[in-house]
Design a protein around this nucleic acid. Structure first.
Lengths: 276, 276
DNA sequence: CCGATTGTCCCACTATTTGGCACTATGCGG
DNA sequence: CCGCATAGTGCCAAATAGTGGGACAATCGG
């Protein structure tokens, strides 16, 4: 329901390399044409003529490909009515969603982030009301963080956790916050802000797309984090950059925010996520 | 594999053309190979060598296709690590899910069902606690049903509605049942069984995969219905066969049940659904 | 440090695609 | 009820697009 126009119209593009913008002519024209065809149908063009003009292929060729795609289940064919994306695509889409080894996919991105910042970078997911560290890249500043992949931490007192909470309904926030700050907990240990304040903070973080952690989990450690979303636009993970206070003054955090957020979004896109 | 003759060299043993019935006189080998490759990756083979052997293509060819698929976003590539289904597939999968005009897809199936039974066939979805008739094929027995596509009916008193309820958590059943039978409703009008009994009926229907309606909505009309599921295994619609009591004795309904269920499943498959 | 895989190029050969054309089937609008 | 525009199906000569062998370099795993 996004696009609807895209009539045939001009946009001729004789043939051979329709979208010049594509990657350099590879050596699999037929495959590429077929895929283009799929995307064409995905865009809403469902009549043969439209498709044919859209990608500049003659009727016979177009039909031949359509037939193959239908035969394989990538397209649905309603005779004399049109073509639609087929079941196989739904199937593969689901598989792609499962099969996704978050860590492997996120690696390159968090490595880039690590190099760019020089600080420790974490990747984590929510599990059972806690943060679960999936990956970690040590900083190059000499200092060692206690965190370790495979470790668990409270959601409300870590940057990673707060980023994960940004994807939850605000109704759950209080419970998780309470879970992090047991009834008569000693004020001696670092801890997140008191409830009303905490809620305000999270709301602000939601708005800006990234969260902060000001020594709330570990004294002397601050971090900036952002949520990672999947194809369904659900928050499935978060990334964070952490360092010692001296390296993390307020203004640096403000600068880092958008960067971390960008990294998180890059990962999101690799997971099939698309802009609002 | 019916790829003509004149093949000779290369493509020896390893060929076995992956998934059997595949290519059958086509004319888009490259496209098909590419798609086969996708399914191969979907199946979990993520190393080049494995893929190459799996579909009998030489290394160079395989790599070429992989590169194209990666370039187009259909695959994810983690250098020296392997290949995974890419974001584009998730994207297309989601689109396929939306784009699905249930009616158009179900038509052929319900027409077949209509011809086979000679009775009125309905297709409907749940909407706001009611059944919403999406399509109807009049029976050939002369009698006319009052139902009309676009009409709404209570869930609990129609076969279609009950089939739709089979996909809901039993916890919601009672509320919907109550909604159909207002407080001091007159016993004069047809209505579903009293609560405890109704629940038992639904449970049985869940087990057998199809539901019945014994003049609970309209006197003299009985019907057999079954739920249609989509790629996420969620009930998104239902089909039913309805007719006048004389044409619908108990034993005929028992015979019809599996048939209606089969039709519903056929539609489900077209929607991307796969067996338990 | 070695062996096994993978990512890349190059290139001659031909099988795989191409796209025109001719016909039939079907849908839509009047 | 009729006709046009679009869709579905084959056939076929031509040549383009794809194939696969082979040689290297970059990496990984151990």
């Amino acid at each position: 329901m996004v696009v609807k126009q895209t009539m045939s119209a001009a946009m001729k593009a004789t043939e051979q390399e329709a979208d010049a913008g594509k990657t350099q002519g590879t050596g699999t024209q037929t495959l590429l044409r077929g895929l283009a065809l799929l995307e064409c149908v995905a865009a809403g063009i469902c009549d043969v003529k439209g498709i044919a003009t859209r990608l500049g292929t003659p009727r016979s060729t177009t039909n031949r490909m359509l037939a193959s795609l239908v035969a394989e289940g990538y397209l649905h064919h309603i005779p004399y009515k049109g073509y639609l994306l087929g079941p196989k695509l739904i199937q593969l889409g689901m598989k792609a969603l499962e099969q996704r080894p978050l860590v492997a996919i996120a690696r390159p991105h968090i490595e880039t982030l690590a190099e760019a910042t020089g600080d420790t970078v974490h990747l984590g997911v929510e599990e059972n009301g806690e943060v679960f560290y999936l990956d970690k890249i040590p900083g190059t500043r000499g200092l060692e963080m206690r965190s370790r992949t495979g470790q668990r931490m409270p959601l409300a007192s870590t940057g990673l956790g707060k980023a994960l909470m940004l994807g939850m309904p605000p109704a759950r926030w209080q419970a998780l916050h309470a879970l992090t700050c047991p009834a008569g907990s000693p004020a001696g240990r670092p801890r997140p802000a008191e409830w009303p304040v905490f809620e305000e903070q999270l709301s602000r973080y939601v708005a800006q797309g990234w969260a902060m952690d000001l020594e709330e989990n570990e004294l002397g450690i601050r971090c900036v984090a952002a949520p990672v979303r999947d194809g369904r636009n659900l928050v499935v993970a978060a990334v964070s950059v952490a360092s010692a206070v001296p390296y993390m003054p307020e203004d640096r955090m403000t600068t880092l925010g958008p960067l971390v957020r960008a990294t998180a979004e890059a990962i999101s896109k690799d997971l099939g996520w698309t802009e609002p």
